[in-house]
C-alpha cells in the first residue's frame, strides 16, 4: 500500500452560499479501502463526485494517479472514468434496459467491445461474482433493493476498474443483504486488487471493509485511523459514531 492512487488537498466547495467542503485533505493508497464517515450533509458524496469529475471544486486539488482531474480534457477524463467505478446509493440501474443490457452498456459503448461472445462472457463473469447469474434477463423493476445494489456492483466491476467509489452501499438494506454487500466489497478488493473509497453510516460495514477511516465534520477531516483506533476515541465528534448504542 505505498503508491497514492488518489490525493486530495485543500478541497473546498460551496453550494448556494453555503460552504459544504471547507478543507478536505486525504490520500488513498493502492489496494486500500478507505471509509469516509460523517453525518448526513457533511459533504462526503460531494467529495467523491469531485473525484470522478461530476462536480467541480471551487478550490483545492484532486489528483488520480498523480494527474489533476480538473486539468483533464474530455478524452483523458473518459479514460480515467473507465479505470474508476462508481456505485451510486440507489444503484442507478438504467430502468429501460434489462440486467444484460445494463451490464453490456459500458462494454459496448465505452470499451467498444464488438464481439458478442466476449461481451456475454464478461456479463456472466460479473454476474457470477455478485451471485446473481439468474437475473440476467430481468428488468431493474423486478429486482429487490439488495439485488439492484449487487447488479450495480456487477456493472461497476465489469470494466475492471482500479478504483471504486461506493456511495452508501448498504443504505436501505436489511442486515443480511448489507453483510453480503460488505463481503462482496472485500472479495472485489482481493480479486481485482482495487482501491476504494466507501461512504457509509453503517458501522458494521465500516468495521468489515475499512483499512482506514476518515471522519468528516463540518466540511473538514477531523480524525483518521483504523476502526479499532477510532473506536477508542473520546472526542465528542467521533465517539457517537462508534458507541451510539452502548452509551446511556
Amino acid at each position: 500500500m505505498n503508491h497514492k492512487v488518489i490525493e486530495i488537498a485543500g478541497l473546498k466547495k460551496t453550494f448556494d452560499g453555503k460552504q459544504i467542503l471547507k478543507n478536505i485533505n486525504f490520500s488513498v493508497f493502492e489496494n486500500e479501502n478507505l471509509v469516509l464517515l460523517g453525518r448526513s450533509g457533511e459533504g462526503k458524496s460531494v467529495t467523491i463526485k469531485c473525484i470522478i469529475g461530476l462536480l467541480e471544486q471551487d478550490e483545492g486539488s484532486v489528483k488520480i494517479y498523480g494527474e489533476e482531474v480538473l486539468d483533464m480534457n474530455q478524452s483523458r477524463l473518459k479514460e480515467m472514468r473507465t479505470k474508476t467505478g462508481f456505485l451510486f446509493q440507489g444503484a442507478a440501474l438504467y430502468d429501460s434496459m434489462t440486467v444484460r443490457e445494463n451490464l453490456a452498456f459500458p462494454l459496448t459503448r465505452v470499451l467498444k467491445i464488438r464481439n458478442r461472445q466476449d461481451v456475454e462472457k464478461r456479463i456472466i463473469e460479473a454476474l457470477d461474482a455478485v451471485g446473481l447469474s439468474d437475473a440476467i434477463n430481468k428488468m431493474p423493476s423486478d429486482l429487490s433493493g439488495g439485488m439492484r445494489k449487487r447488479i450495480g456492483l456487477a456493472r461497476t466491476i465489469i470494466v475492471k476498474p482500479k478504483i471504486i467509489l461506493f456511495d452508501e452501499p448498504t443504505t436501505g438494506l436489511d442486515p443480511i443483504s448489507s453483510r453480503e454487500i460488505c463481503d462482496l466489497i472485500m472479495e472485489i478488493k482481493r480479486k481485482y486488487r482495487t482501491s476504494s473509497i466507501i461512504i457509509t453510516h453503517d458501522m458494521e460495514c465500516a468495521r468489515i471493509t475499512a483499512d482506514r477511516i476518515i471522519v468528516i465534520h463540518e466540511g473538514e477531516c477531523i480524525a483518521e485511523g483504523t476502526f479499532e483506533e477510532l473506536e477508542k476515541s473520546t472526542d465528542p465528534q467521533i465517539h457517537p459514531f462508534f458507541n451510539w448504542m452502548g452509551d446511556p
Binding site: 461530476l54 472514468r81 473507465t82 451510486f88 442507478a92 440501474l93 438504467y94 452498456f105 465505452v110 470494466v159
Partner: peptide
C-alpha cells in the same frame, strides 16, 4: 426521472 435517480450521472461516470 433518469436525472433524479442518477442514471444520467451513472452513464457519465461510466465514460459514455
Amino acid at each position: 426521472s433518469m436525472s433524479v435517480t442518477e442514471q444520467i450521472d451513472a452513464m457519465e461516470v461510466s465514460g459514455a
